[in-house]
């Protein structure tokens, strides 16, 4: 492991622990009301918002939603991209042309506006966000996986799997699939980062699920309730910083893994 990757993993681990057991770290319940607009102090380390909710507790509970949305959408996108890439790369011929053509069409769609429009029509909600993100973000993974599969399908063990009479789906799932993990993993990490940013932006413009307090939703409330105009920095800075650090952690892991893969390929 390289240094950026270690750093990213430590930061990510910290966030993950927070997300798994927010109750043990948060000083307050995020829905208990205290005096609104309290600046940071000994009672509330990061102050309170307009409803009197403790910001630090909100932040810690919010990590759960934000990370879940990030992971779930990235996993969905990776799965879709992986399946499309493997099928296109292994089957070749007409199926490949069809799938890759479809990929190119999806790739051309400006998907943040599309997500915004769909979120307006389908209503806010993290599940809808995950579905939409999964349906649009898989294209780059599909292309990367396909090019790797084109290489693996000619390798000895795939040939010998065909010689041993394994069914096609079995070869794709059992022989080729696991050999793609080191390629898909960095891409998946980068997708998590991208999904979290997208979720934050979609929430920020008011299309997030207000009942699920993610960091993006916190930012959105801070903005609409006038935290910026009134100089209440303790309200809008923490979620912004949390998003940035978290995305950076994923990006560090993703990029350093990707570099490692490319290095291995060049070797």
């Amino acid at each position: 492991m390289r240094r950026p990757e270690i750093l990213g993993s430590i930061v990510l681990a910290a966030f993950l622990i927070m997300a798994v057991a927010p109750g043990t770290f948060a000083p307050q319940d995020p829905y208990t009301r205290f005096t609104p607009y309290t600046p940071p102090g000994s009672d509330h380390l990061l102050g309170t918002n307009d409803m009197g909710h403790d910001i630090l507790s909100e932040l810690i509970y919010g990590s759960r939603v934000s990370l879940f949305v990030g992971f779930a959408s990235a996993l969905l996108a990776t799965m879709v991209g992986g399946i499309v890439g493997i099928v296109a790369g292994y089957c070749r011929g007409g199926i490949e042309d069809l799938l890759m053509g479809f990929t190119d069409i999806i790739l051309m769609l400006p998907w943040i506006p599309v997500i915004i429009i769909l979120a307006v029509f389908l209503g806010p909600g993290i599940w809808i966000f995950i579905l939409i993100f999964g349906a649009f973000a898989w294209t780059s993974i599909a292309r990367i996986i396909r090019s790797k599969v084109l290489q693996i399908r000619e390798s000895g063990f795939v040939q010998s799997a065909r010689c041993l009479g394994f069914p096609t789906w079995y070869i794709m799932a059992e022989e080729i699939g696991p050999n793609l993990f080191h390629i898909a993993f960095p891409q998946c990490m980068l997708l998590v980062a991208s999904a979290m940013i997208t979720e934050a932006s979609v929430s920020f413009i008011g299309l997030g699920d207000p009942s699920m307090k993610s960091w993006g939703v916190m930012l959105s409330f801070a903005f609409t309730k006038g935290a910026l105009i009134n100089g209440m920095w303790w309200w809008y800075l923490p979620p912004g910083i949390a998003i940035s650090i978290c995305v950076m952690a994923f990006a560090l892991i993703g990029y350093s893994r990707e570099k490692w893969v490319n290095f291995e390929v060049r070797e």
């Binding site: 000895g156 063990f157 010998s160 799997a161 010689c163 041993l164 009479g165 394994f166 696991p178 050999n179």
Partner: peptide
């Protein structure tokens, strides 16, 4: 039908043994 025959009734050994096994 060929897939069912291969590996069961017809065994095939290709060249380059080290690559014929899945490294994982």
């Amino acid at each position: 039908d060929l897939i069912a025959l291969r590996g069961q009734e017809i065994g095939i050994i290709l060249q380059n043994p080290s690559r014929a096994l899945n490294p994982l």
